[in-house]
Design a protein around this nucleic acid. Structure first.
Length: 574
RNA sequence: GGUGGGAUAGCUCAGCUGGUUAGAGCGCAGCACUCAUAAUGCUGAGGUCGGUGGUUCAAGUCCACCUCUCACUACCA
């Protein structure tokens, strides 16, 4: 049994996340964590809110709250949203936690000891009206290239040219609109990534099990040549920059670490907090000198995060010279798109986690987002596909299977798993199906091929329906009750199996199925071993045991629902 | 502009190192069944694999160029 450490990219604090964020990091990580636990592995799944940076300060300002208060509130909201979506985090931390302050400052210190950090002066736009330095993106003005009047400081939305905010004509603050802006010198700490490129490349060369998307992004940056990166910012909210004695570093009294420096460190700090909570040992997960050597570390993230996880964070860890655990497998996702565009928090395009649950149960979303996971390319979300997929896969194929077999048992066999009869051709057929499909399913989970794992799961459910057609207990019942009993018994055992394999994806419905069929908790794991026991699965549940027919598992999505949602959320083909 | 994806049945997508008549699900059309949420099963129709050239005995799969589309491009995260 392996020890598997799982992290999903930290959701940013400035609002409840939309379905694209969910589908690209938290959800697949959760499905993977659940599957690996069922296979008997020791799993630690860590996530947290990412709370620092300019957008957090601005969002707090807009909400009329102190930043700390705002983050507290939004952390609670995101934690709740995660719980509502059945995220099985072992710990959901906060990048603003004291543990992360301490650890981030520690990393900065050892990196500086290793001569990988140096102080440099750069020019940055300062807004007098806002009383703050502005990130490039928050400075707007006239594009020097095309004269577009609302060009952002980093790139012109009109002509697409990359810009330097200093080049903007008539610049103003995007925050307040004030033209009272000026360029000021500011000193910052730079992480000398350039000196690490050889080591990083060697490390990426050895990477196995990364999607093409991830390696190609990493190599692209390495090929272009890594630039040194400022790891501090002129902000109040964040992790203070300290000196060797732990006091505020001279000249950095109004500066904090850059959010992208401290955010991945929070993976470790959150593990420390988990350990403090549970009395467990965090070092055996993160320190290769303390037992983390045999840990398999898997990260989940959207493609925008790849560079930070393949280059910046490894620079921090490798550069420390300390024996930290680096990521083994990295699963990167594309985007879920919304009627031709991206989901957007700022433009309120798409569906957000809290709204989604007012529309449909979490199982529906979990299934749909995983069955259509944006693994090879951006994946389009449409209400019509959502409806068709849920109704077909969940309601018709799985839900109706469980319903038909349990109802029939209740009406003809007194609600008990029937005894009697001999297995025949139909049973041989379904056993053969399971013998080929279950190993494939497990393999797909282990390789984190989610779309295909969902398709295989569905295929197994569908095989159950085909089995019932072949066995046709309702036909035999008239002439030979024992013959019918075989079909019903096998069908019920299949329903159990279907619930068991559904657990990582649709935990609520799976629990309903397994509860109704009286399956004790300890018999719900994936103890398939070498798969030799598969033939026994069709007669595993004790004969004579009483079972219940669960209520309708999946209500169908009606055309009216789709029409209403389209109206409300503006999802419409253009 | 640079870089990296993607372009395959009406729709959403599989097709590893090139090799029999190009696959799945949905949708659609027939047929079967009647235990079930009018559910399920079977069968079938539907594709010059974005375009043009090339390499090869053989290309959806390799090469070149082109078109469309998406993303990334380091101070948003």
């Amino acid at each position: 049994m392996a020890r598997i450490l799982i992290t999903s990219a930290l959701p940013y604090i400035n609002g409840v996340k939309h379905l694209g964020n969910l589908a690209g990091s938290m959800l697949p990580a959760d499905v993977y964590a659940r599957a690996m636990r069922l296979l008997g592995h020791e799993v630690l799944y860590i996530c947290a809110t990412d709370e620092h940076g300019t957008p957090a300060e601005l969002a707090a300002q807009e909400a009329g709250l102190e930043v700390a208060e705002y983050c507290e509130k939004m952390h609670a909201a995101q934690k709740q949203a995660g719980a509502d979506f059945k995220m099985s985090y072992d710990y959901f931390g906060r990048s603003s936690a004291p543990s992360n302050h301490k650890l981030t400052q520690h990393f900065a210190r050892v990196l500086e000891d290793n001569d990988l950090i140096e102080e440099r002066v750069s020019q940055q736009v300062y807004s007098n009206a806002d009383g703050r330095f502005l990130p490039d993106r928050y400075v707007e003005g006239t594009c020097p290239n095309c004269a577009f009047e609302k060009a952002r400081g980093d790139q012109c939305d009109n002509c697409g040219k990359l810009l330097d905010p200093i080049d903007l004509i008539n610049p103003y603050s995007a925050v307040s609109g004030s033209h009272d802006v000026e360029v000021r010198d500011t000193n910052h700490l730079y992480l000398k990534q350039s000196e690490m490129s050889e080591k990083l490349r060697a490390w990426v060369d050895k990477a196995e099990g990364w999607p093409h998307l991830a390696t190609s992004i990493a190599y692209k940056w390495l090929d272009e040549g890594l630039r040194d990166r400022a790891i501090t910012r002129d902000l109040k909210w964040g992790i203070p920059v300290t000196d060797k004695e732990g006091n505020r570093r001279d000249g950095f009294e109004d500066k904090v670490f850059y959010v992208w420096f401290d955010a991945p460190i929070e993976y470790i700090a959150a593990t420390q907090d988990w350990a403090a909570d549970t009395g467990e040992d965090w070092e055996s997960w993160w320190r290769t000198d303390k037992g983390a050597d045999d840990v398999q570390y898997v990260q989940f993230m959207g493609k925008d995060n790849v560079a930070f996880h393949t280059l910046s964070f490894p620079t921090t860890l490798l550069g420390s010279g300390e024996p930290w655990k680096l990521v083994d497998q990295l699963k990167a996702f594309n985007w879920v798109t919304w009627y031709g565009g991206k989901f957007s928090t700022s433009q309120k395009r798409g569906v957000f986690m809290d709204q989604a649950l007012a529309i449909a149960p979490s199982d529906y979303w979990r299934w749909h987002l995983m069955a259509n996971a944006p693994e090879s390319d951006d994946a389009a979300f449409t209400w019509e596909e959502f409806q068709a997929g849920i109704n077909s896969d969940l309601a018709n194929v799985l839900g109706n299977f469980v319903n038909r077999i349990t109802k029939y048992t209740a009406s003809k066999f007194d609600g008990k798993i029937p005894d009697g009869g001999e297995t025949g051709e139909a049973e041989s057929w379904i056993v053969k199906e399971l013998q080929t499909r279950i190993p494939v399913l497990i393999d797909l989970y282990e390789r984190r091929e989610f779309r295909k794992a969902m398709a295989e799961t569905r295929a197994i459910w569908a095989a159950g329906n085909e089995y019932l057609t072949q066995a046709a207990p309702w036909s035999h019942y008239k002439m030979d009750v024992d013959q019918a009993a075989v079909g019903v018994r096998t069908g019920l055992n299949l329903a159990v199996l279907f619930g068991i394999i559904a657990q990582p994806i649709i935990p609520d419905a799976a629990a309903k199925i397994l509860d109704a069929l009286n399956i004790p908790e300890k018999n719900r794991s994936w103890g398939f071993g070498d798969f030799a026991g598969i033939p026994d699965l069709i007669d595993a549940v004790p004969r004579g045991m009483e079972i219940a027919a669960p209520d309708v598992l999946f209500a169908k999505i009606e055309d009216d629902d789709v029409a209403g949602w389209t109206e409300k959320f503006g999802g419409k083909s253009e």
